[in-house]
Simulated scan of single mutants.
Amino acid sequence: MAKKKKVLITGGAGFLGSHLCDRFLKEGYDVIAMDNLITGSLENIEHLFKREDFVFYHHDVSKFVHVPGDLDYILHFASPASPIDYLKMPIQTLKVGSLGTHNLLGLAKAKNARILIASTSEVYGDPLVHPQTEDYWGNVNPVGPRGVYDEAKRFQEAITMAYHTFHGLETRIIRIFNTYGPRMRLDDGRVLPAFISQALRGEDLTCFGDGSQTRSFCYVDDLVEGIYRLLLSDYPHPVNIGNPDEITIKQFGEEIIKLTNANQKLIFKPLPTDDPKQRKPDTTKAREILGWEPKYSRAEGLKPTLEYFKNKVLK
């Protein structure tokens, strides 16, 4: 019988990491989840604790990372990912993107493992190219408040490619666009959980700017499928994964109000510094290289997401 493959998922107790744990267990892997729990929650993975093919390590990857035995794959998803988190924890954000990535690339080299790095559409900054293609270098303010996250991810990509070209390490880089679904934190500051939780609480929805800025929302199951396909592909360069169905923030707020049968209205506040005005992935590479396209419409993805939030907000 073939030996089971083993995967390490950092940020494994987070929103995306926990869904990845579920997917790789379903595919028959032994899964190690690693998280320091500064933004992740054990509640996201408690349903896995009794499984013999699942192990959790409470650890900060910015410090030396040791995993006993063989390791086939590493997925690096450890990082504060929402503005409210990385503005509150700027140093930790920079450290996990730099020191943490360095530690995990070293572990991958030592174990002869393939590593997939979770980058982000934020590497494009406030883009001057629309939609965003992987060969666009971005428009990022390195010393602005968002620079701690944007530049951490840009450095992460650079050191990952350096390990690939210099050491011949098997590396993959995914650029994630706005993703949503069950297990998102209500208080993470991103527009979707903020709008839904405000609507369910009977509060007006806070819209920053005039609402004309755009986002493209991808359901978590679609993202996980893209991650899985990219990991098992032979393509080492960055790939956008996201849903190109673009919508303005104002339209999205109105959509949430209608979906939740709320009587609230949108209230407008100043746009935060360097907040991107447009977000839409060009997913040509994902389609051509991975055979991947999003399957879930926003209406389909919002149904289970709304039920999850109802259980959190209204219980």
Rank of each mutant, 00 (worst) to 15 (best):
I289P: 00
T39S: 15
N139P: 05
A81V: 09
N261D: 14
I257T: 09
K26F: 09
M161G: 01
Y29M: 02
M34T: 05
A286G: 15
A13C: 14
I117G: 07
K315Y: 02
E134K: 06
N103L: 14
S233V: 00
D274C: 12
Q213H: 13
V191A: 03
R183M: 14
L200F: 05
T120L: 13
M161C: 02
D72A: 05
P80C: 07
H59G: 10
G168Q: 04
C207T: 15
F166C: 11
I267M: 10
D150H: 10
K285M: 06
W292N: 02
D188Q: 11
R229S: 06
H58M: 01
I159F: 03
I174Y: 04
L306H: 00
T214Y: 00
I174P: 01
D188F: 12
H19I: 10
K95I: 11
K26T: 10
I74R: 07
K153G: 14
D187L: 03
K280S: 01
E170F: 01
K269L: 09
G181P: 11
G202K: 11
T133I: 13
Q278I: 09
Y180M: 01
N263D: 15
A110I: 02
V67A: 09
Q278V: 12
L128D: 11
K109I: 05
I241L: 10
R201G: 15
A162T: 10
D70L: 10
P68V: 07
G28M: 06
G202S: 09
G168M: 04
L290A: 10
G147C: 13
G14T: 11
V96C: 09
S98T: 15
S41D: 14
Y228C: 08
D70P: 08
Q278Y: 11
H66Q: 15
I173H: 02
E255S: 05
P244F: 04
L230N: 07
T273C: 03
R229G: 08
P193E: 01
I9F: 14
L186H: 04
K63N: 12
F309L: 11
G301Q: 09
I174V: 15
F15T: 02
L314S: 06
R23S: 08
S62V: 04
G209V: 08
E203T: 00
H76A: 04
V55F: 12
E43D: 12
D234E: 15
R183H: 14
R51T: 05
L75R: 10
G209F: 13
D30K: 09
I289C: 02
Q92G: 14
G301D: 10
I289F: 01
S18M: 12
Y149P: 01
T284K: 08
T248Q: 02
K5E: 13
S79C: 14
K26E: 15
E27P: 01
V129S: 13
I256E: 00
R175M: 02
I115P: 05
P80M: 10
R154E: 01
K269P: 00
T171V: 15
F64R: 14
P272W: 06
R279Y: 02
L104Y: 07
L107G: 08
V31D: 03
F56N: 00
D85M: 03
G12A: 06
L231Q: 08
G144K: 14
V7I: 15
I241P: 01
L266T: 13
Q92D: 15
D30T: 12
N139R: 11
V148A: 03
T133F: 02
I91M: 14
L169G: 00
D53P: 05
